[in-house]
C-alpha cells in the first residue's frame, strides 16, 4: 500500500542546504513531530548560528535567530516566559560544544525545561569546514589539513554522555543519526520522547544527531552516509543515554 507522506505545513517554503546534507532531514523531523503533537501554534524554534540558520526563513512558526553559541541561554529566557510553549534550541557541534559550551552546559545544569538538538557534522560547516570539538582523530579539515592531531587539540567531545553522567535529573538524552530509514525513524522517536518530556515538565532534554556534511567532507552524499555508519558510530554510539522516568 502506498503511504502518502505530507510535507509539514510549517515547511511549505523551500530550504536550501547542499545535496546530501543532514540538516534538511532533521528540520523535517522536528516539524513532523511538532505537528503530530499539534504544537505548531505553540512552539518556538530558537536557532543558533551555522548552516541551519538558512532554515529559519522557511520555518513558518515562531522562531528566533540567536548569536553564535548562545541559543541555550536565549531558549532559557523563552521557556521561563512561555512555560507552556514547546521551546526547541537547534544548534550545531560548533555552536553548542565550542563557543557555546558554557551556555549549553549551564542550561543542562539548571535543568531548563527545553529541548536542545545539536547536529554533529564533525566540523564548522557554514564557515568552510574548520575543525570543531567533534572532529574525529586524523580527520582532515581546513584548520587541520594534515588530519586532527589529538595530542595537541584534545579528543572529540561527547556532550550527551557528559550530560547524562553529570546531571541525574536531566529528563532525556539520546544520540541519533539520519543515515538509514531505520535510524531516521529511531531519531523521530527520540525527538517525540524529548518533546513529550518537555511538555510534561520533566526537565532538560538533549538529542545529538550524527549528520553528513558532504560538501566539507569532500565526499559524495553516499560516501558521507557510509562514513557515519562505519567510522562515527564507533566513537559516538547511537541510543538513549537517559530515558524518561514518566511515560
Amino acid at each position: 500500500m502506498a503511504i502518502a507522506k505530507k510535507v509539514p505545513e510549517m515547511l511549505s517554503k523551500q530550504i536550501s542546504f547542499c545535496p546530501g546534507c543532514g540538516h534538511g532531514v532533521v528540520v523535517r523531523l522536528l516539524a513532523e513531530c511538532v505537528e503530530e503533537l499539534k504544537m505548531e501554534k505553540n512552539v518556538i524554534f530558537n536557532v543558533g548560528v551555522g548552516c541551519y540558520s538558512l532554515a529559519t526563513p522557511s520555518i513558518e512558526a515562531d522562531k528566533f535567530d540567536t548569536l553564535h553559541g548562545r541559543a541555550s541561554a536565549v531558549a532559557t529566557g523563552f521557556k521561563r516566559c512561555n512555560p507552556d510553549t514547546l521551546v526547541i534550541s537547534y544548534q550545531g557541534d560548533g555552536d553548542a560544544y565550542s563557543i557555546g559550551v558554557g551556555e549549553s552546559f549551564s542550561a543542562a545544569y539548571r535543568n531548563e525545561n527545553i529541548t536542545v538538538i545539536t547536529v554533529n557534522n564533525t566540523n564548522y560547516g557554514m564557515t568552510g569546514g574548520q575543525m570543531s570539538a567533534t572532529t574525529m582523530p586524523g580527520q582532515k579539515t581546513t584548520t587541520s589539513p594534515h588530519g586532527r592531531d589529538c595530542n595537541t587539540t584534545g579528543m572529540p567531545i561527547k556532550f550527551p554522555e557528559m550530560v547524562a553522567a553529570t546531571f541525574p535529573n536531566a529528563a532525556y538524552v539520546a544520540r541519533g543519526s539520519v543515515t538509514t530509514p531505520k535510524y531516521v525513524n529511531q531519531l523521530k522517536k527520540y525527538i517525540l520522547n524529548a518533546f513529550k518530556a518537555q511538555l510534561n515538565n520533566e526537565g532538560y532534554s538533549l538529542i545529538e544527531v550524527l549528520s553528513p556534511c558532504p560538501t566539507n567532507w569532500k565526499m559524495t552524499p553516499l560516501q558521507s552516509l557510509e562514513r557515519i555508519n562505519k567510522e562515527l558510530v564507533d566513537y559516538y554510539p547511537l541510543g538513549e543515554f537517559k530515558t524518561r522516568k514518566e511515560k
Binding site: 528566533f64 548562545r70 541561554a73 529566557g77 521561563r80 516566559c81 551556555e103
Partner: peptide
Amino acid sequence: GASMNILTGASAS
C-alpha cells in the same frame, strides 16, 4: 554574557 542572552529570550517574549 549568558545573562544578557537569557534576557534576549525574555525581551523577545
